[in-house]
């Protein structure tokens, strides 16, 4: 069931167009992440959802109701700010109680819900502290509690982990997922960290240059990227430019180094991609019908269970591949072969 819908939003800043025809529909209780490099427009989308920025054209619908022109305080959306934006002159308790006091709740009700929120983020014993007396991770959780305590229809998260160190970030991701699962609130997260996005989200919208490039589950984005940008932005990839000749079931892809069948592909210039974990490294060319390329090891990064190789193809392009490293790593300069099955090759538009 669609909860929040963004319809054909355009946003101009003077002559600059920040968003091009952005549309997105989000189901109730879903965890959606807007993922993209900085300047891609993901934060602008969040600000429009929060009500901080007017749109140039387009609509935001909440359960079918048009909220585009509604000021932020009338939207009932929670927002966790990048720098948390906790009120420095209020205690943790008062920060969390703020949205309830705004809504004129009874004192008993406020107390009950603030304490519940504090328990949810495990900060009950810090209730009387000032925010600046807490660590970054704790402040983050206060911000989360404050944004959730009034039971918002949607929770917006603006790069919530960006100020935290790696270990803390990992723990908080777990905690956030747990909270999402237990509350069933719709979460919309903005980040440039693809690991965070893939770890937490039900669906991810990849943004670039003010457009949504692809909106799908993490698995689909990884295995079925719709464009070279998505393929390269999500995970590691080896991209080959080439040409499709023929059509229908007899269409074939030709690149400088190999050719293969590519059924139902559009005739003409084309791009395909192979993930590094789908390639295999051998000292001799395997003779099993897989596509095989002679390569030379340029460098390798050993990570215990496996190694990531950067390989030089005969045409001068790089190729990256993972290989098991139980019996050691091929030294730099070794001539070896890399091979992959044609069904693992992903055609990009």
């Amino acid at each position: 069931m669609t909860s929040l819908e963004i319809k054909n939003i355009n946003k101009h800043y003077g002559a600059v167009q920040a968003l091009h025809d952005v549309s997105l529909s989000i189901n109730k209780g879903e965890f959606v992440t807007l993922l993209g490099p900085s300047g891609s427009g993901k934060t602008t989308v969040l600000k429009i959802l929060a009500g901080f920025e007017p749109v140039t054209s387009g609509q935001v619908l909440m359960e079918g109701r048009d909220v585009t022109a509604l000021p932020p305080e009338k939207r009932n959306f929670g927002l966790v700010f990048q720098g948390y934006a906790l009120f420095p002159h209020m205690s943790v308790y008062d920060n969390i109680a703020y949205p309830l006091r705004v809504r004129r709740q009874s004192k008993a009700m406020i107390d009950e819900r603030v304490l519940a929120a504090l328990d949810l983020v495990q900060l009950r014993k810090f209730a009387n502290r000032r925010p600046q007396e807490l660590s970054g991770g704790q402040q983050q959780r206060v911000a989360l509690a404050r944004a959730l305590v009034f039971k918002p229809d949607v929770l917006l998260l603006d790069e919530p982990m960006s100020a935290l160190d790696k270990q803390l970030r990992h723990d908080l991701q777990e905690e956030l997922r747990e909270i999402h699962r237990s509350l069933g609130t719709t979460f919309i997260n903005v980040t440039h960290d693809q690991e965070e996005a893939m770890h937490m989200s039900d669906r991810i919208a990849i943004m670039d240059h003010g457009q949504i490039k692809q909106y799908d589950t993490a698995h689909q984005l990884y295995r079925r990227p719709a464009s070279r940008f998505v393929a390269e932005f999500v995970g590691k990839s080896n991209v080959f430019q080439g040409e499709v000749r023929g059509s229908g079931s007899s269409a074939r892809f030709y690149s400088a180094s190999f050719e293969m069948p590519l059924a139902d592909a559009q005739t003409g210039a084309s791009t395909v991609m192979i993930r590094p974990e789908d390639a295999e490294i051998t000292t001799t060319a395997p003779n099993d019908g897989r596509i095989t390329l002679p390569v030379q090891v340029i460098s390798s990064t050993y990570s215990g269970d496996r190694a990531l190789y950067t390989l030089l193809q005969s045409d001068g392009a790089d190729f990256i591949a993972y290989a098991p490293a139980r019996s050691g790593v091929f030294p730099d300069g070794t001539d070896i072969f890399v091979s992959f099955a044609s069904q693992d090759v992903i055609a990009l538009a």
């Binding site: 305080e73 009338k74 959306f77 927002l79 700010f81 934006a85 009120f87 949205p99």
Partner: peptide, 10 residues
């Protein structure tokens, strides 16, 4: 802005 997002009027 945080105050606004939490529902507080201007």
């Amino acid at each position: 802005l945080a105050g606004a997002s939490l529902g507080a009027s201007r």
